[in-house]
Every structure is written in structure tokens, then in C-alpha cells.
Design a protein around this nucleic acid. Sequence first.
DNA 1: TCTGATGCGTC
DNA 2: GTCGGAC
DNA 3: GTCCGACGACGCATCAGA
Length: 552
Amino acid sequence: MNGRYFIELAEICEKIKETTSKLEKISKLGNFLKNLNDEELSATIRLLNSDILPPWYNKEIQVGYSTLSSIILEISGSSKEEFFKVYVKHGDLGETAEELLKKGKALNPLVQDKLTILKVYKTLLKISEYSGEGSYQSKKNALLNLFVNASPIEAKYLVKIITGELRIGLSEGLLEESLAYALGIPLTNLREKVLILPDLSEVAIRIKNGKYEEIDLELLRPTSFMLAEPMSSPEEIANYFNKEIIAEYKYDGIRAQIHKKDNKIRIFSRRLDEISFYLPEVVESISSLKGVFILDSEIISIKNDKVLPFNILQRRLRRKNIDKKLIEEIPLRAIVYDVLFYNGKQVYKLPLRERKELLKNIDFKDRIELGFFKIVRNSAEISKLFEESLNKGFEGIMIKDPDSPYTPGKRGKAWIKLKKEFDTLDVVIVAAEYGHGKRAGILSDYTFAVKDNNELKVIGKAYSGLTDEEMEILDRKLRDITIEDLGYKIIVKPEIVLEVAFDSIQISDRHDSGFALRFPRIKRIRWDKSPHEIDTIEKVREIYERKKAIFA
DNA sequence: TCTGATGCGTC
DNA sequence: GTCGGAC
DNA sequence: GTCCGACGACGCATCAGA
């Protein structure tokens, strides 16, 4: 197989990693991309964008940390202890592979079959095809075939590409900039098209072949979702807009983009996976609606007038067998609140208030319903609706600018979300783990517990919420109070108290308290509190029961 | 045949 | 989903 | 302002191995 060598790509990545200059990254990569043919350009973009298989391909590589580390062990001939030491040091599997291969006695030191970009890409595609008994070995063999022919630096980038964590200061944003540079078009033009047709590789090839103008929203192909920004109070929202705004309930469900063209129906998830298959009764309901359209909606489950909690709803996803019983047990409905395409017309650029008018033309019925919305003018009205939403068992409200177009992929301030104020618990740190990537080598991940009479019961983990500085202070302190060093993790004396915020409490067997927190984040370190003053398992149970009362 | 580990998507 | 930080 | 990386819990499918 001829073509550009993978080592070229690996070396470009290395240069990108070494410089912090954005312009330099862009010109280095851009110049490389410029000279690739269509097939190689497409493959390179997919490799760099952790997009080896587009989401609607409905296949997965199913190779992760575990498989890769066993391969690294095998070809480097290092001991498990050594592997671990190096891994904790780098906090990155790719860097680990490089270091171990450099000093290891490689299985096959002679490079006989130089890797090309296409060979790598095609091998990864092939790996996704293996399934069934023995597939783990087949995947591993195919990978070994790549790795024995890889130099240390190539091995590093193979690993990084497969895990999807390049960590070289280049992700979709800069990749797009480099591509715009290579194609000689303004970045904004490229961005606009990518949001509408979220497949960088395909967009690039189409533009390269002079088809820029033809790229637009397409029925039965997913487009990016418009996203919302959080605000923390009705006052903040009212002040920000200072005009009449549209308010909707916010549902704790699954985002769904519904496409209908003639009798073809496809539903896409937030990450653009097709999920129609899991939702047969929803598809059936959609098929009875008239018209050709793309709708934005949230799928939730309501039973006996009560909202089912998210973890129950989740049982409807990624399921192979969907039987009658399940459909009755977790009945679905799609709450529709926006329209992007309607009867032959692109309507996503129209202002929201006009799109809401269009929605009235659709004869919603069965499991598909038009989402409630109303105009609000001030913080008091926002507050009122917010309370109403919580009482109904929903998550909060969405506030939207009636003059705004639907901007795929953008998290702008045209849509604002207001969620329930979180509860907090005072907990004590009982263990800590080393971080990854930029947090390599520092104890940045904390396991914490609440009090159960004279015992401590673990209830969750968190790192989010602390500044780098606070993390460093904790790191030093934790090393001082270590009881046991497990290599990747340390057990510490229960001394440091944290105030942890969360959205809700769920029953769980992950931790020995029997509970877990949803969206835990650290509010602050309570240096002023002693571990005797932390919250108890009774309080946890109380919060859990309180929330349960409004659920089915 | 069952169980635990793994990967990956949802939020 | 969450968050802090870099640009 | 915007993007990005580094992280949480959950449930399902799959596969290896007991």
C-alpha cells in the first residue's frame, strides 16, 4: 500500500504539541493537509478528530485502556510495576507507550512494513468489524500488527488516536482552522458548514471539490444541536434579556432530533447517534404525523402522571431487545419544542417565535406532543414558572430569545437554562487518585465519605470545582496523611472536609454507603470543619426520600 | 451458564 | 452532565 | 465569549474466563 507515511503525521503532531503558538500549529498542520489526496485527507481528519467511525456508522472500536495497555506490555516487554510507574508519571497511555518502547527491547526491532496513514485508518475500521467469540483476540492481533511496525513515536500517536485523547493542544477547533488554511477558505465559512453537516471529513472533501454551496441541512442526516447556557437566578435572566422572552419547562430526558421524510423516520441523539431503533413506539407515533420535517425534542417517560427518574429512562437506551413489557414499563413521549426543516423549507434561520408558529401546523398526537411554552416578561414570572416546573417533577426551565435563529452546535446566550438549586453535603476525604493529562502525577481526584454512626461510608468521587492552586494544596496535605499507598491511589486519614454540591442522590452499589451523587462538584474545602462535623447517612437518606416523593 | 471487566453512550 | 482555565 | 480538557454516575452489550 502506497501513500503518505504515518510517521509524517506523528511528527507533525509532535511539533504541534511542542509549540503553544496557535498560528504555528495551524500552519504546520495546514501545510501538511494541503498536500494530501482526498482519501488521505479524509482519513487524517478522522484520525485527528477521534472520529474514526462517524456516529451514524453504528459501530464501535471497542478498544480502550485495558486492551492497549496489555499490548504495550507485550511489545515493550516491561513489567507491570514498571508500566504502572510510568503511567502514573505521564497520566497518558500514549506517552507511556513511547517511553516503554524506547527503553524496552522491542519484539521486532526491525521496521519492515512502514505504516501509512491509510493503513492505520483502514486497520482501525477493520477492527470495528470484529465481533463475536474470539473478537478480542482478532482486534488485538490487528493492533499488534500495527504496533510491531511502529516506532515509539508512532506507537504513542496510535494509542492517542485510538483512545481519542490526543492532548497536544489540538482539537476540533484548531483542526478546523488548519483545514480552512489548507483549503484556502475563511474559517467562519467552514465552521458554518460543519455545524450544519457535522462531519468535518465529509465537509472538507466536498469543499475541496468545489461543492461548498451545496452543503446545507439534509433530511435524514443529523445536524448539531443548539445548546444552552446556565444562569443561576430569574433576576439574572430577566436582566440579561430585558424584554419579552419565551419560557419552557426543562425536562430531564434524552435530547432527540426527529427527521421525517415520507415514510422514513430517523431519530438522532445529542452525539448524533441514531437511536430510532430503541424507540419503536415513538417512531410509530411519528409516522402518523403529516409532513416532512426535522424537529428538536426531549424524550421523557411519564407514568401515572409522574415523571420517571432519569436512570429508569436510561434503560430504554442501547438495548438490543425491546419487548412489549419494556414499552409498557417505561412509556415514552417526545416533547417537541423546535423545528429546523418544515415541508421542503429550511426554517432554522427563522426567529424562534416564527418557528414556534410553524410548530402549530403539525397535528401532534399519540406519543408526540407540542411542548408547553409561554411568554414571560420579568423575574417574578420566571420564578413562578420555575416553581411550577419543579412541582411537576421537571428539572427547571429554559428561557429563549424569541428573535434568535436556531444555531446548530452553538452554546450561546440565546438559550438559557435554569436548574434547581443544588443541595450540598459536608464530607470527608478518605482516598485520592492521581490525575491524567495535565493533572498527571498530582492527587486530583478525591473519594469521600459521610458518617454512619461510628463508621465512614463512601458516597462519591469528585475533582471538579477546585482551582489548580487548591488542588496543589490538597495534594501536599494528602501525602502527609497517607495511610496506605496503592500505587495509582492512596488511602488517607479522614481529616479533610469538603463541601460537595450535587443535583440529586441515587441508590447505587458503586460505593459502600449504598448511595451515589449525580453531578458531584466541590463547592469548597472546609478547613474550619473537623471530620466529626460532617453529614450523616441519615441526611443523605432524607434528601433522597424528599426527591423521590415527586417521582413515580 | 454465570459473572466480572470493559467500553461507550446518556445525562 | 459539571467545572476551571487558557486564549 | 468561547473553547477545551479533566472529571462524575448510570445502564446496556459484549466478551473472556471461571
